[in-house]
Design a protein around this nucleic acid. Sequence first.
DNA 1: AGTTTTTCATTTGTCAGACATTTAAAAGTC
DNA 2: GACTTTTAAATGTCTGACAAATGAAAAACT
Lengths: 248, 248
Amino acid sequence: MKNSTPQPEDLSARIARAIRDAIVEGRLIVDERLPSEAELSEQFEVSRPTVREALKRLAAQSLIRTQRGASGGAFVNRLSFEDAHAQQITTSTLLLSMNDVRFDVACEARFALERACAPLSAQRRSADHLATMRAEIHRQGQPGLTDEAFCTSDVTFHRALVDGAGNPVLSYQLAGAVEAMQPLMNMITFTTRSREKVIALHQVIADAIAEQDGTAACAALTALEEETQALARKALAARAETQQQATG
Amino acid sequence: MKNSTPQPEDLSARIARAIRDAIVEGRLIVDERLPSEAELSEQFEVSRPTVREALKRLAAQSLIRTQRGASGGAFVNRLSFEDAHAQQITTSTLLLSMNDVRFDVACEARFALERACAPLSAQRRSADHLATMRAEIHRQGQPGLTDEAFCTSDVTFHRALVDGAGNPVLSYQLAGAVEAMQPLMNMITFTTRSREKVIALHQVIADAIAEQDGTAACAALTALEEETQALARKALAARAETQQQATG
DNA sequence: AGTTTTTCATTTGTCAGACATTTAAAAGTC
DNA sequence: GACTTTTAAATGTCTGACAAATGAAAAACT
């Protein structure tokens, strides 16, 4: 009986939904101005604060932007790849951290997706992308680099690989998978030896991309995945042992 | 000089950001209750409506949920895969439609990502996933099926393929790529002949997945990509011709 | 006439206070 | 002890107001 009315939606939620539907269905187009808050409150027969709450909901999703002053108002926002990118990353990050997603699951997803990009990137990467990859490899070899900085560089390297495919949709979709891994990677303590292995594989990948050899890049990515998984297992085991010492 | 203060963020945006950061950085954990709106307005030294606007922003991103009554309030929400899934789809759909992303770009991304799933799906798919795929193939062969229904079935088929990989992170990341294509696919008019080709390739994919042959599934996906791209080119050309007739 | 300055109306941003509604816990009753 | 009633706390909503930004029209000036 409880679920007959799951959750009578708030007025502001209903209004937000109505406007969102109008945008998604194309009844409101990009840069079109919405009625003023006063007009909206008349149309929906609610108070202005309620309308405002609805508009803030939409603003939070980058669906509208607001401007003050005469001829200001709320405008349908062109959702940019940049905005979508950022949203994707925070959503993915939270998703992984809040649901206790196992490292190996996230890692598998990440490398599977990257392998999807490798062949395209091998074909199309610009000199810039390649230069970024090589620069990051160099950075990763610097002594005295913290683990966190190493991970950040790792992400930059892989993003260059993905962006090399020259497909913005692909870059957008991959953003979450690549960047959201960083907090998980930070669990790992990278020894000098393990860094050397990772860097060597990065080198193989960069070389393969340079020679437009997608197959080789995929193979190196697979090797890197196995190496990463092994490192994570080791970190996890070490952590378990520490905990056992603490409790026992 | 204009960019020195790019856009003085609203109070409600600032407060939302502060709380969001607290959640992302783990200072607020799942199911933890936030201070009441009255307390928040004191802490941030703003009025309750402003606090409420901030909370609505967070609610729009499924970061919090609110409950009325005594011992009610705003609680940090566990971002579920389901919620994230839904958000991803609407974001991806809007992104594609608002930025005039070319069909071939979106299509390329979609199939590249699906090929990343195919080997995993071939290894792990359950009987259920396979049954869904076969059922959709059968549905696609039914006469009198509208183009829209055909596309819907196509999406269901491909989602089963992706879900077969048994990696929820992968399923989540792929959701946008697969589902957001549907509006684009609906441009295409499927002739009986073209449907037959698509169905035949679906059959090849399903068989490959059944026999745990990831390589064959990938090959069939590539063939399906080429077929889809060809159909889209045809639809585009036909549209261009119609327009020329209208204007000329 | 042309240009600059001022005024003004519009619109969002913010605030204060009030009431309605929901809900769980406390108090009261049998 | 089990049930009912009361109560307090919290969100949901409304009204009315003022502040601040901004573009356009009006006015003033050259």
